[in-house]
């Protein structure tokens, strides 16, 4: 099972949970399984067959854009992190 980390802003749509365990061999399968458990997340996360803009998804710390998007492989003990896009820092 992969663990999906839910950012603070999306926890109200995930029953208040910060971490949700779901099964899936690809990111697409994992996210489909996630929205099956918490349907309110769907429109916040997915835009048809794509991850919405301003949402960054990482599998084991790597941005899925460079791993094949929704086809990105997700290992058995993988951590999937959903994060809002934030610019800046010590600039």
């Amino acid at each position: 099972m992969a663990v999906v980390r839910i950012p603070t802003v999306l926890r109200p749509q995930a029953g208040g949970e910060a971490r949700v365990e779901v099964a899936g061999a690809t990111l697409g399968e994992v996210l489909r399984a996630l929205v099956a458990v918490h349907p309110a997340l769907e429109e916040r996360l997915l835009d048809g067959d794509r991850v919405r803009g301003y949402v960054n998804v990482f599998v084991d710390d790597e941005d899925v854009r460079y791993l094949g998007g929704l086809d990105a492989p997700v290992g058995d003990a993988a951590e999937v992190t959903i994060m809002p896009a934030v610019a800046g820092g010590a600039r």
Binding site: T8, V9, L10, G53, Y54, P84, A85, V86, A87
Partner: peptide, 11 residues
């Protein structure tokens, strides 16, 4: 992140 709204995300 707690202060950010997904719709205000910025690239």
């Amino acid at each position: 992140y707690g202060l950010r709204n997904l719709d205000e995300g910025y690239v």
